[in-house]
Amino acid sequence: MKSSALNRLLVETGELYSFAVRFFREGFRPRYEIAELIRQCFYIGNKTLPLVGLTGFIMGLVITIQSHPSLEAFGAQSWLPSVVSVSLVREIVPVITALICAGKIGSGIGAELGSMKVTEQIDAMEVSGTNPFKYLVVTRVFAAMLMLPLLIIVCDTISLYGSFLGTNMKQVITFHLFVNQVFEKLSFGDVLPSIIKSFFFGFAIGIIGCFKGFNTTNGTEGVGRAANSAVVACTFVVFIIDLMAAQIADILHIT
């Protein structure tokens, strides 16, 4: 990497850190923009749910179908529901949901705030006596933090139903038995880390999207760049958080 590119990366990381510190400083002090927070929660949750739900269903179905031959080779078909459910709930659903949200929410926030920045709407907000950071950034980051865990829980449920259908393609199993086999292996220790890390996914997606949008320059060209770089950065950070979460869960023996 050229030194100028490295410098730019380090400077931007420092600026993102300052931006995040400002979020914590301003996010917990009045005035609270509750109406805008609810609007953003609705927007993020409602707009992303169909995509996340469909993806979850397909993931559950496909992973079950593809896992079946391997387990069958060892005569362990009966383990299919429990094995698939653990991998779905612990890893696949949270990460895939976060990646979808990185694409949809991260880019959406980056483009929306970027366009507001270049058309002076953020300045107009400030001039009208509104703190744009509180109104635009704090609400979106909190909304992403609140909605990501909910989306992941919904996606878990839908993907398990997809897995039930996938299991039934290869063998006959009742829904009651499938659920019993899933919860035989799936423990609270599997669900909790995925919920905890989803808050961090939400925070990362929200703060990076807002940071990119809030610092947009160079007019409409900059808006496109902000949306694009928000997706790239969010995707990268989601994997970093996932890696760290796996290590921490392992160290704390949350398995």
Partner: peptide, 15 residues
């Protein structure tokens, strides 16, 4: 700022 209005060149209406 309540006493000082500002008309932006780009209008800055909230889309």
């Amino acid at each position: 700022r309540i006493k000082v209005g500002f008309l932006f060149q780009s209008n800055a209406l909230y889309d």
